[in-house]
């Protein structure tokens, strides 16, 4: 029971620390946000969408934007820990190291949802499409968790390398292809107002990937961060 309480305390302390440092510096969110808004803006001009084709590409553009911006955030989130030796500070604490992983993942998840919350209204206005659909919001939550759960693990691996900025996308994008495909298909289904029965397999796939990615990270994080 004490171990569980220590686990929660450590995890919440890391989330609080990440939110507090981000509130002061605004480095991570601003980088993610500027990047996401630029991508949406560029796609808007590049695709020259008609009202008929708009719904077909919306989910794709949305997830490309979210995953690219998410990668920037994941890289920065671990780089901050590494550059001042703070990752060692965390690893020296007498807590279960998975508490460190879940603390970092939860903070990254919050940042990704914040970015999504800001780009959704921007996208809706720019593309004249209503994205405030209950099902789509659920897909964003599930997709974002899956992405940051494996992304935080791979970022903690990539941060040890000098080429960490290049390494993370190379490691992360191939692994998350099934997750992104499921998220795009499920999002598209909700935007096109398809029957729930057609969307459910993609939602189930998203949940399965969330569970698998979280379980893998839970099992291997300790080995990944140890020299």
């Amino acid at each position: 029971m004490k171990a569980l309480s220590n686990f929660w305390r450590a995890m919440l302390a890391i989330v609080w620390k990440d939110l507090a440092t981000e509130w002061r510096s605004r480095e991570l969110i601003s980088a993610m946000l500027v990047f996401a808004l630029l991508v949406i803006f560029i796609f808007n001009f590049a695709l020259e969408l008609t009202p008929q084709t708009r719904n077909d590409v919306t989910s794709g553009v949305l997830w490309v934007t979210l995953t690219f911006a998410g990668t920037l955030g994941l890289n920065r989130s671990m780089a901050v820990e590494k550059d001042r030796g703070c990752l060692d500070g965390l690893l020296l604490a007498p807590v279960d190291r998975t508490a460190i992983y879940f603390g970092k993942t939860l903070a990254n998840f919050i940042f990704m949802l914040l970015v999504a919350a800001i780009i959704l209204p921007f996208y809706s206005v720019l593309y004249n499409t209503n994205l405030f659909v209950g099902g789509l919001l659920l897909v964003i939550v599930l997709g974002a968790w899956g992405y940051v759960s494996i992304g935080t693990l791979l970022a903690s691996m990539a941060v040890q390398a000098r080429t960490r900025d290049i390494l993370l996308p190379i490691l992360l994008f191939p692994v998350t292809v099934p997750l992104v495909v499921a998220a795009v298909k499920a999002s598209s289904g909700y935007l096109k107002l398809l029957d729930q029965v057609e969307i459910t397999p993609w939602l189930s796939l998203l949940i399965v990937f969330d569970l698998i990615f979280t379980a893998i990270a839970f099992l291997v994080f300790d080995s990944v961060v140890e020299e």
Binding site: A13, R24, G89
Partner: peptide, 20 residues
Amino acid sequence: LPLLYGDLTAEENLRFYGRL
């Protein structure tokens, strides 16, 4: 390396590690 967070105060840094 100091193992400290530049965007936290001295007290907040110690409070964070104290919780861990």
